[in-house]
Design a protein around this nucleic acid. Structure first.
Lengths: 136, 136
DNA sequence: TTGTGATGCATGCAAACGCATGAACCTTAA
DNA sequence: TTAAGGTTCATGCGTTTGCATGCATCACAA
């Protein structure tokens, strides 16, 4: 089954690179998942519903809720009431959060670029992006 | 940066598909990581060192050790002393373990093939496999 | 309006995780 | 042979996770 071989290769690539990136010293005391949330927030028109985040992060809703607790405790994220829905909470980066995201993101992006360009041609990078988008 | 876009696409694809696969009812009471270990064992010339497993699974060594505890408790895996190295432990599937791996693997492989073929052409499947192998 | 069910997020609790460390064993060299 | 250092796996402990559930709010129909 070529589809299954492709999936296994994707899993292997993911594991290999995640391990490598996690071992690098660029995270400023954050777990990778915590940085992931900061990154997602930085990419969105400011106030993001917590439910939207859970679509981007591979984490249960309660785990995400507590991860946000930690980011709030670190002063990187703010919980704001949603004026349009009293149940909802909207998340926004604080100034400190934006700053940390920027610095970590810059260093991490360098590692990512280096790791991928070491192993793939420019064509393959484009193919990977196209394929990834189709799957996501 | 096209390399970073490619990595983000890969991450998105991984998260999306992992979520989908985890939600399917094919795991026979196993966590996906537990199945992953059974699968790796089934693919190897019988007795596998626990240290080798940790290269394939995205998990710390202690976590893997306890995951094996659980599989042993379920009667799916055996710990055998390594005759060539008194520190080492070699792992082997039991008959029950082989059976469970086979059944779960068959169902899961079907989902994987369906999910990937729904979204990718045959050419893209081959590209993904090539790219994945280069990265892993 | 009021009641019924759905939705968004938080919390209790047991399970699983990572880090630091320990115990047993291998290796090497004096 | 034995002492020093490295390797392999297991265990202690605090942290993070998922599942089940609770609380508050929303949507809608009677």
């Amino acid at each position: 089954m070529t589809a299954n071989d492709a999936w296994e290769a994707l899993l292997g690539a993911h594991a290999r690179l995640m391990r490598q990136f996690a071992a690098e010293d660029v995270w400023a005391g954050l777990a990778m998942r915590e940085y992931d949330v900061l990154y997602t927030l930085s990419k969105c028109p400011e106030p993001q519903r917590i439910g939207e985040l859970s679509h981007h992060v591979l984490l249960s809703q309660p785990a995400l809720s507590r991860l946000v607790d930690r980011l709030v405790a670190k002063g990187l994220v703010e919980r704001c009431p949603d004026p349009a829905d009293g149940r909802g909470v909207r998340l926004a980066l604080t100034a400190a959060g934006r700053d940390v995201q920027y610095r970590v993101g810059r260093d991490h992006a360098r590692s990512v670029a280096r790791a991928l360009r070491e192993r793939l041609t420019e064509d393959e990078l484009h193919q990977l992006e196209v394929i990834g988008r189709k799957l996501a």
